[in-house]
Amino acid sequence: MNRIVGCVSLATIAACSAPPQERAHDRLSPDEIVSGSVFLTAETRALQADDFANPGFLWVDRGEALFSEAPQTGPACVSCHADGLAGVAATYPAYDSDTDTVLNIEGRINQCRAKHQGASSLDYESDELLSLTAYIANQSRGAPVSVDTSGSARAVYEEGARYFRTRRGQFNLSCQQCHTENWGKRLRGDTLSQGHGNGFPAYRLEWQSMGSLHRRLRDCDMGVRAEPLPYGDPLYIAVELYLAARADGLEVESPAVRR
């Protein structure tokens, strides 16, 4: 008994002098997880909810056309995926045994293009890739985010978690400090969201365009004046996996409208 008391008081002293330990609310508790749409104005929420006026659907429409359009070198996506891909995007990023890596939707599309269509990779933020990801993600709209972080994906998940918690940039801020510890508070003109990726690819008013989650992550890194990683960087895919696990159970909203 005495020994336990001794440990506790030691730990208390240590907490005062040493860098703070990983906090108890390292991940959001399931009942406090809310989508980024909660922090929007009523007008922006209404725009997202209107399937006609939501500008993201311009990309969804284009993606639907591309999905059934065969490239010159191989069959169209629809020839394999005739029943669509409902619910699939909610399980991504996911481990792929062929490449022994974790792939996000963008990576999966490019892998499919190389393997089954004999086609070249599509660039991040190209109209084609954004349209296809928007179309595929939209088929999971309403499905709860649920990614597998066990087995081979575990190390990648840990890597993403580490990135999320590491202070970076001239402002020396981690993702964690804003989006887990201080969400809901004001940061200059904005309310801090919880930093979930459930709406992406999303139409951002600031971009006046559709953009991938990696574009959003690059913006966040630039926001704390850190060097952003290149599009499709494995470390960003790891962050994407961590974010998805952290948003477990939240509904996919793509194409969401965000500030």
């Binding site: 006609f52 006026a53 500008p55 311009l58 006046q208 365009s209």
Partner: peptide, 9 residues
């Protein structure tokens, strides 16, 4: 009536 067009403006 609603009309939406994709354009960078």
């Amino acid at each position: 009536v609603k009309a939406l067009i994709r354009h960078p403006m």
